Simulated scan of single mutants.
Amino acid sequence: MRVAEVRRESANALTLVLEDAAVPGRPFDFRPGQYFTLAADRDGAPCWRAYSATSVPGTGQLHLTVKRVEQGRFSAHVHQQVRVGDRLSVRVPRAPSTPAPPRLSGRC
């Protein structure tokens, strides 16, 4: 994934706006409540953290908001190092998820 935008939300939170580097604009399909796992190399070792999407499913950009955590290796990396144009490894969405909405029969 390519970082399309880094949006500062507050002093200790920012939103990464990601898009598919291979096919920009391709929609991200997920259900509310699912999370995406980001990976970064920290001091020669992989570091993984999971974040819930803060964007709407089915759009061409994935928004993940990262709160800076004291002693948090991954959140410190995101806040200090990640820039527009960087590429991040992102795993497919995982559960938990909310159940699919019921199908309506069309009857009143």
Rank of each mutant, 00 (worst) to 15 (best):
V17I: 14
E9V: 15
R94F: 04
D43S: 14
G33M: 02
A11H: 11
H79P: 06
L62E: 07
R83W: 07
H63M: 09
F28V: 10
T59G: 10
G33V: 02
P101Y: 06
E19R: 12
F30V: 10
L14Q: 10
R2G: 01
P93H: 12
Y51I: 04
A4M: 10
G85Y: 08
T37C: 01
R2L: 08
G25W: 10
A40N: 01
V3N: 03
R103G: 10
L64F: 06
L18R: 05
R87W: 02
A76C: 04
P99V: 09
S89L: 14
P102D: 07
P32W: 13
S52T: 14
V23W: 11
G44L: 05
A40Y: 03
A11K: 08
F36M: 02
P101H: 11
S52R: 03
A22Y: 04
C108Q: 15
L18V: 01
N12K: 11
R87F: 04
V82L: 13
D43T: 07
F36I: 06
A11F: 10
P46E: 01
E19T: 12
G106M: 04
R26D: 09
H63K: 12
P57K: 07
K67I: 10
G60W: 12
V3M: 03
V23C: 09
L64V: 12
E70C: 01
R2W: 02
A40W: 02
T37V: 14
A11N: 11
